[in-house]
Write a protein that binds this DNA or RNA. Structure first.
Lengths: 131, 131
DNA sequence: TTGACAATACGAAATACTTCGTAGTAATCT
DNA sequence: AGATTACTACGAAGTATTTCGTATTGTCAA
């Protein structure tokens, strides 16, 4: 199977793996599993199988040169996040970024510092530094 | 099966139905289906089954008093949106609302008006009107 | 009242997702 | 070498999701 040009949106379980890899960088199944298994009950072969499937789907890249294969994400974190945010924006928020932000802030109150960060982000978009 | 106290997070197909109901308000399967079938190919009984399942899950409420049952959403739109945004915020953004907003704006450039709306929303949270 | 139409109920196939056990194989230890 | 350990490969079960066909039932007009 040829690798996806742009990989599919990760499922929930796959997102867990990605999150760990975003933190650790390129890692073996063992390393990912050790982190994951501290968060919830899961067998080693389950983590393995997930990562194998993710490699097939083009979500991960696999380096087989060592005895323990090393997996790395195939898209930078930002790209995956944009994909996910864009999807939710479309499907659940009718494209309204305002309502998405409202939802996020309602779900988890932001600190004063975080509000300042958000404001700064808007500044960057207004001055065209990010548009 | 007793109705869910708080219904589960809707799936993608279920979200389509919800989106239509958010626009139309309480509706029959026929009314929802007519909208949906303009967006993509789908059979009437598929729409019907989906809505029946959603009622079972507690996502929709069903009024059977008329020949054609009338379905309505069981949670206000805002609540479902908060649930979805919160979930994504957790799973994909490590809780960073800033990165979620960045993802959203990267996916779909906001107009100057929308940026102003976003700013206003932050104002409301800062002055405590929404905290 | 019967035929045509429109709605619901239901079973079930097709697909996708998640999980894990078993088997095989390579590395390491005694 | 033989035993032990650690890894990958793979099949497959269990569950959830999505889709649709068939059967049944209610409504209404002729």
């Amino acid at each position: 199977m040829p690798p996806h040009p742009t990989p599919p949106r990760p499922t929930d379980a796959e997102l867990e793996i990605l999150s760990v890899l975003w933190r650790l960088g390129p890692s073996t199944v063992r390393e990912v599993h050790d982190v994951l298994s501290k968060e919830r009950p899961i067998q080693y072969t389950t983590t393995l199988k997930l990562m194998q499937i993710m490699a097939e789907k083009g979500l991960l890249e696999r380096d087989e040169s060592a005895r323990s294969h090393v997996y790395s994400v195939r898209q930078p974190r930002e790209r995956t996040q944009t994909q996910l945010a864009g999807h939710l924006l479309d499907r659940a928020f009718g494209g309204s970024a305002r309502n998405l932000l409202l939802g996020a802030l309602s779900a988890k109150k932001a600190s004063r510092e975080e509000l300042a960060e958000l404001r700064k982000l808007l500044d960057e978009f207004e001055t065209g530094r990010k548009s």
